[in-house]
Amino acid sequence: MCLSVPGKILKIEKSRAHADVGGFLREISLDLCPNVSIGEYVLIHAGFAIQKVDEKEAEESLALLLRMAET
């Protein structure tokens, strides 16, 4: 029901940011996700960052999946 893709924060100006999604830049609003830093990834939905993407969790998930797939 809701498309959302991860983008990397490159630049922050007040409540707006530039996010890199696969090499193109999109201006997004940080109104819903104010505590992000440059270099972090956020989920983008309808022009807004709606949540940070947790890199550590992602790595752990993948490691778990890999172990599962191998057994």
Binding site: P6, L62, M68, A69, T71
Partner: peptide, 20 residues
């Protein structure tokens, strides 16, 4: 793309299907 491509891996998908 980060956080997308890793989660489309064929090998892991096959393993998961086996698990299922």
């Amino acid at each position: 793309m980060k956080f997308i491509d890793e989660f489309r891996d064929k090998g892991i998908a096959e393993g998961l299907i086996r698990k299922i």
